[in-house]
């Protein structure tokens, strides 16, 4: 009699408590799901200790960020003053006929940059991002820039193409954009060098 009662007791706990226990755990886990997607109000996501520590960390992040910006500006002003600065940028437009792997830059016949793109970076270029592949210094006057692009061209074939430009470096900073775009009429990629002052 006694053992039967215990058995029933266990059964009721197993059949009711068991699922309910998991259900509670499940519902508790579902709220962070929402928090990840849209950001839940602060009061719903964490305890006091978490919030105070979190606030401290966020404030610290902001300070580090400001400091980083200052360091970034200092670095550029110190190493690449505006009157001698030259920067080379890579951009892509559409990219149906060319998948970029790498870019090599030669300035006055000297290789100054050789950059291999990750798929993630190539995707960022396709979305409209522009990559500064090189920054350096040049004296005023005439210079020759050669850009070599490698990647996959139409029909997934290995593709290698160069573009040359003579640039006149003046007193201000000089920006060169290496623009890869599609020439739809010929189903071929096109490599254009654009000079910005």
């Amino acid at each position: 009699m006694n053992s039967e009662r215990i058995r029933v007791g266990i059964m009721s706990r197993m059949s009711i408590f068991g699922p309910v226990f998991v259900l509670i755990a499940l519902l508790a886990a579902s709220m962070p799901l929402f928090a990840q997607e849209a950001g839940a109000p602060a009061t719903n996501v964490a305890g006091e200790e978490f919030r105070s520590l979190d606030q401290e960390v966020q404030a610290l992040k902001k300070e580090v960020l400001d400091l980083n910006r200052e360091l970034f500006v200092l670095e550029e002003e110190l190493l690449f003053p505006a009157n001698t600065q030259v920067a080379v940028f890579v951009s892509m437009d559409v990219g149906e006929f060319f998948a970029l792997d790498s870019v090599t830059i030669k300035l006055d016949n000297k290789e100054v940059a050789n950059y291999l793109y990750t798929p993630r970076e190539a995707e960022a270029l396709l979305k409209g991002g522009v990559h500064r592949v090189y920054i350096g210094n040049l004296k005023a006057g005439e210079h020759e820039l050669i850009a070599l692009f490698t990647g996959q061209g139409p029909n997934a074939r290995d593709y290698r193409r160069g573009a040359t430009v003579t640039l006149e470096k003046g007193v201000g900073a000089k920006y060169i954009e290496l623009k890869i775009s599609d020439r739809a009429a010929r189903a071929q990629p096109e490599f254009v060098v654009k000079q910005w002052d």
Binding site: S91, D93, L126, K127, G128, G129, V130, R132
Partner: peptide
Amino acid sequence: GTPQAVKDLHWGEVLFYFY
């Protein structure tokens, strides 16, 4: 694959990291 009308190269550079 959506082309961006980037008018300042440095804005494009910001987007490069943002994306």
